[in-house]
Design a protein around this nucleic acid. Structure first.
Lengths: 246, 246
DNA sequence: CGCAATATTGACCATCATCAATTGGCGTGG
DNA sequence: CCACGCCAATTGATGATGGTCAATATTGCG
């Protein structure tokens, strides 16, 4: 579980993301690479952090796929976000002591934990990096807002189309899309929990999207056959992902 | 529209909020009070910032009531958050160039606009203030998450009860609640747009909540008759508001 | 007093949830 | 290599929650 190594080569995805926001100096890059880390390789369906915890470190996803979620008293679940390599899904724990939701790996993944104290020193020493990390949490919030619109106002059909658009764009941004295809290992139950739907209904809408030849879904693989029809179906506009530089 | 005055006494609510997160030194307090501002007094139902804008300043609410929202192509609306005095609803614009949603006053209000450049200088000079402002945007995101759960998984009845709980707690936190009563000037259409419901259905559920003598609602006035039953109905737990110090 | 916005009501209906099987895919142990 | 078992996907039947439409009643306010 513990890994004494430092300066693993795996800040690359995170650095890529930060560089997409603006220039990163050699000094800043070095400061990030020097962050102490603890490596972990969760199996699929394993909680990384739980609601109620007061973690002392943040989790950076190196490989795999993760999500954040909340459980209701009766056991129903709402998935709040999906996370790809380069994301720090619980960066908010740096400033919010107690987790108001849980973080889980959805696939066997590789993550590193970075102590809050180290991040705090980093941010206090490098205001530009602070801005970038802050910005990252703000994009996070922007995605929440877009999901709220879907959950509150869009039909099941549009919601699913929209989520697929978002995932394709996010995967593409981290080099995990081959053309119009992504490796998406989500069960229909997981999709339903993200979309505020029942898995039965998700199943039916997926059949419709396939029948209309807008997408193709085989085991763990989503292929977009007609991007324009998918974005139209989901009323998708990627502005909310704020991929352009700050 | 423009007001050359500086050091208005109205940073009090913001300073109160920051102080609730941790100690604020005299120097930091002075730095905030010295921020240049432009005062504005929007009428009710007036947009302060619009989706697509690239604002060069942030908006601090001094008095009144505001909300953020998104419009769908067909004109339907999803309200994303409500804001009370002391809030900086569009602080995210400091790091996200283009607004992905709009900000509007719901009542005649008083707000000030603070230039991004001034805030940026402030944060780069005062890492502790940065942490606090960052934290504020993180609480914002935490509220989005809780709303997502409501929109995705809770019944109309629970959603409304939950929102009322949240509003009472938020109003109380800024001294705008008298005992169990708040001045809540929201139309049923506005409630519906926040809750992802139709106004007709909101009306019916409100009647139920009144009939059960859990709340009382007269014009612009919400009184909670039985807090325990309201929180139970809404499955409300205020942890997500992160009111306790960092 | 009269307008305009808001709230309320009733009738009807669509979307989506629930429940309960059944089918299919796939890894594993014999 | 094949049968078993498990999980995920699929299907059908039924019904509830909440939407839509349209009319009416209220309320605030100039």
């Amino acid at each position: 579980m513990h890994d004494p190594l430092r300066s693993q080569p795996n800040y690359d995805r995170l650095l890529d993301k930060l560089e997409s926001m603006g220039p990163v100096t050699q000094e800043q890059r070095a400061a990030i690479r020097d962050l102490p880390i603890r490596v972990s390789e969760p199996k699929g369906d394993e909680d990384l952090v739980r609601e109620g915890d007061a973690p002392k470190e943040c989790c950076l996803v190196l490989e795999g796929f993760a999500c954040r979620y909340k459980l209701l008293p009766d056991g129903r679940r709402q998935i709040l976000s999906f996370h790809v390599p380069g994301d720090i899904p619980d960066l908010q724990s740096l400033h919010l002591r107690k987790m108001d939701h849980s973080l889980a790996a959805l696939l066997p993944s590789r993550v590193v934990y970075i102590p809050h104290e180290a991040i705090r020193r980093l941010t206090h020493a490098h205001p530009r990096l602070t801005d970038m990390l802050w910005r990252d949490t703000l994009v996070d919030a922007a995605v929440f807002r877009e999901w709220m619109v879907g959950l509150g106002r869009r039909s099941a059909y549009a919601r699913i189309a929209h989520l697929f658009c978002e995932l394709v764009v996010k995967f593409r941004a981290v080099g995990l899309a081959k053309d119009d295809t992504i490796e998406l290992r989500l069960t229909q139950v997981e999709l339903a929990d993200a979309l505020g739907l029942s898995s039965v209904h998700v199943n039916r809408v997926l059949q419709q999207l396939r029948g209309e030849e807008i997408i193709q879904m085989r085991t763990g693989r989503l292929q977009v056959l007609e991007w324009s029809r998918l974005t139209a179906a989901g009323e998708f506009n990627e502005d909310y992902l704020h991929l352009a530089a700050a």
